[in-house]
Design a binder for these strands. Structure first.
Lengths: 210, 210
DNA sequence: TAGATTGTTAATCGATTAACAATC
DNA sequence: TAGATTGTTAATCGATTAACAATC
């Protein structure tokens, strides 16, 4: 196996991707690590190190071809393939995510919305029908589902997460405010803990006042 | 000035806070760094190091008093004071956040919702009226606003961010998919880049398949 | 060719873990 | 007092930055 690439590096890749996309929009064809470092407020050294984890995308004396590098990072991030997403928990946050068209441009398409509240059954968010959670097994049989988004209350998250993995979904985007205990299960989890983010902001507010 | 505490440490504090809250709910009175490390899947050494950045909260031979430590971390994170929040951008995400009651338990209260779309003027989300953005200046004069949440399209984010700081709001919770350039401005920014999170998940999906 | 800039090795810095003396 | 466990120093590990030879 090749040497593992650290999550610190992975976390920075979407940002590179975003800046390169902006450069394309501006019509910039080539860029040096030095110019990019100035724009992004990171060191040129870090940019070159990060990119060289995945291969040599530049050319000495020239720099990087913007379009080429953009496409390569897209490949690295798996954006060349479509990702079908379901959202479990059709409350405010679930509906908000289902309404987000922006994700579709990156290849992430929400194809299903589930809840346990019978009052929501058959209602629509955009063109997505809200189904009952007990229909999930049948749904998964007929649709390819790549990612399950968890936007239900934290009490239910763990058991739903296990169910989802049982049904063959191997990626979870978790908004529930718990650490899912899925040890030894074949699943990758990405957490979005909004209240943690708010608390970090709060800390920095207090600090800035000192 | 005391030695700066790294953001790596700060990022972990809300998680400690959450676990200690759960321990209180379970009726646990005291806990050792070793027991806590087992629950949280981190090293006991890291827990003790992290906490000792802020002071000695434990007692040799005893461990940590759960309730006391919980309260102290709450103080560190600034949760003893109420934070008034406004949300700018009353689209899906903005409305979802305005509907989140959970944040209120932590002292974060959403007191205003703003947009530029006249169709939304005067509508309500929970008990929060949607106001037009040009009413913001007047609103800020009559209400204490601690945090401005940006949930508008990225094109507008930078100018709104500057306006908000001009009006005396010194904290921004930014959901717009841009890096706000607010150098030399007296403001703390916390970013939530949902599509970056999704791309990181996508990378890990591809990797797990190899 | 000469200048520019990468890819990569080496040096530094910071964060994590281990160890243990202090002490409850 | 003896055992337990912290607070803190020292050691290790990993990530970032600097330097420069390779090369376009």
């Amino acid at each position: 196996m090749e040497k593992e690439i650290s999550q610190a590096v992975i976390r920075r890749m979407p940002r590179y991707y975003r800046y390169l996309g902006e450069l394309i929009d501006e019509g910039v064809e080539r860029i040096s690590s030095n110019e990019l470092s100035y724009r992004m407020q990171v060191t040129a050294s870090q940019i070159r190190q990060d990119l060289n984890n995945f291969g040599g995308f530049g050319q000495q004396g020239y720099g990087y071809n913007v379009k080429y590098l953009y496409d390569e990072i897209g490949k690295i991030l798996g954006l060349t393939q479509k990702h079908n997403i379901i959202v479990i928990g059709a409350g405010n946050l679930g509906q908000a995510l289902a309404n987000y068209v922006k994700f579709e441009k990156l290849g992430f398409v929400i194809i299903g919305l589930f809840d346990v509240n019978p009052a929501l059954k058959g209602t629509f968010v955009r063109d997505i029908e809200v189904r009952m959670l007990d229909e999930l097994e049948d749904f998964v049989k007929h649709h390819k589902v790549d990612i399950a988004t968890l936007t239900m209350p934290k009490e239910a998250a763990e058991s739903v997460a296990n169910k989802v993995v049982d049904l063959g979904i191997h990626a979870i985007w978790n908004f529930a405010h718990v650490d899912l205990q899925l040890l030894d299960r074949d699943v990758v989890v990405e957490n979005v803990h909004l209240s943690d983010s708010l608390m970090q902001l709060s800390y920095n507010i207090v600090k800035s006042r000192q």
